Amino acid sequence: PADTPEDKSETVGLALPQVEVKISDVVTGDSVPLGEQGEICARGYLVMTEYFRNPEASAATVDKDGWLHTGDLGTMDQRGYVRVTGRLKDMIIRGGENIYPREVESVIFTHPKILDVAVVGVPDEVWGERVVAVIRWKDESDQPTAAELVEFCTERLARHKAPKEWFSAEAFPLTGSGKIQKYRIASLVGEGAYGVVS
């Protein structure tokens, strides 16, 4: 009850009593410095021991030190408040660089002509993955060009994070609870189901 409205709306709060939370490097598993993004991990009495009759999934989720790897990306501030910034499985690896779709999407959302966006990684023979954006427009008759969108992004993001391919969609595939199914969007891009923004 004593938390500020900003903390209540922008963070998931503090760890519960007798529970440890850390933000770990997605490669090494070591704790990252405060404010840096990594995987949210938890350890304590409420963490499961294992998946029922599934030792492979158990080993992939709970490490030897008892840390449960949530698959969520986040940051922790100096007060211990945690912000969720994305999903590890959505992370794009391009030429050895980790690109977080939510970071790219938050920039694209600020474009005045864009209603909604989903950023996904699609396979690339040279770089491993390519960064692709699928857009829903506020006004179908008033769309910027792909070159304008790339320029908009590169003014606000590192060049390697900016999508080089842009597609338009009338709607995104959703789960029953209304979450965007990014794996389906990546498949639909590969199938040529979306219109190309030129």
Rank of each mutant, 00 (worst) to 15 (best):
T4H: 05
E6N: 08
S9F: 14
T11N: 02
V12P: 00
G13H: 03
L16W: 10
Q18V: 12
G29R: 13
G29K: 13
V32R: 11
P33N: 06
E36P: 12
E39H: 03
I40F: 07
L46R: 09
V47W: 04
M48A: 14
A60D: 12
W67I: 04
T70W: 07
T70N: 06
T70C: 07
R79L: 08
V82C: 00
V82R: 01
V84S: 08
V84W: 07
G86M: 08
L88N: 07
G96S: 11
I99Q: 04
E105Y: 08
V107L: 00
F109P: 07
I114M: 05
I114H: 07
V117L: 10
E125T: 08
E125D: 11
A133M: 06
D139R: 09
A146N: 04
C153Y: 01
E155A: 14
R156S: 06
R156F: 04
A158R: 10
K161R: 11
K161D: 03
P163M: 03
F167E: 00
S168L: 00
A169E: 08
A171F: 13
L174S: 03
G176L: 14
K179D: 04
Y183S: 15
R184E: 13
I185A: 01
S187D: 13
L188V: 06
G190L: 11
G192A: 03
V196P: 03
S198G: 11
